[in-house]
């Protein structure tokens, strides 16, 4: 085998290994495949009193199934509430009276938006707002409420 052929085979091995690695990283390790599908989406908005630890790109779930992602998080200057926009897969049409709440996966897991469909026969369109929202549970508030309840029941006795 000539020297040149050896060099070319060596470079071929390098390139082949890199392509395999890139493929594994793209498909199996990261969410490239999900993004690459690039399904058509529509945008929904929702105001929350408190978003807790919600982050951009957090999943939006319907009955536990991911149907979209959080696109942006900001503050609505007119009413000082958090404004979250989500991109939802066009395949899923949601009733007008759908409600959104910020939930946590597991005890210490990441936060996501859970959607609860209502019974309206009209559907939410692009750029519509979800009116019924429930904020994230903040541990401090939760404990505070618990304390109040406990003292209340103690008083009654």
């Amino acid at each position: 085998m000539g020297k040149q052929a050896k060099i070319e085979i060596g470079v071929g091995i390098l390139v082949l290994f890199s392509i395999i690695s890139l493929f594994v990283i793209a498909m199996k390790v990261s969410n490239f495949a999900d993004m690459a599908q690039d399904r058509p989406t529509y945008t929904l908005k929702a105001h929350f009193d408190n978003i807790g630890g919600l982050k951009v790109r957090a999943p939006v779930k319907l009955s536990g199934v991911v149907i979209g992602r959080v696109a942006s998080i900001g503050v609505d200057k007119s009413n000082y509430r958090a404004l979250v926009t989500m991109k939802i897969d066009k395949a899923y049409q949601l009733p007008l009276d759908t409600s959104a709440s910020i939930l946590t996966s597991g005890l210490l897991g990441d936060q996501y938006i859970g959607l609860e469909p209502g019974g309206d026969d009209q559907y939410l369109a692009d750029e519509d707002e979800i009116e019924m929202t429930q904020s994230a549970l903040v541990l401090e508030n939760l404990i505070g409420q618990l304390m109040v309840k406990l003292t209340d029941s103690g008083d009654k006795q």
């Binding site: 990283i25 793209a26 199996k28 390790v29 990261s30 969410n31 490239f32 993004m35 790109r57 990441d110």
Partner: peptide, 15 residues
């Protein structure tokens, strides 16, 4: 092992 990884590794942000 794989599903957790897949859910948390972002193509743009990480790769």
């Amino acid at each position: 092992f794989w599903s957790q990884m897949h859910a948390h590794v972002d193509w743009r942000e990480d790769v």
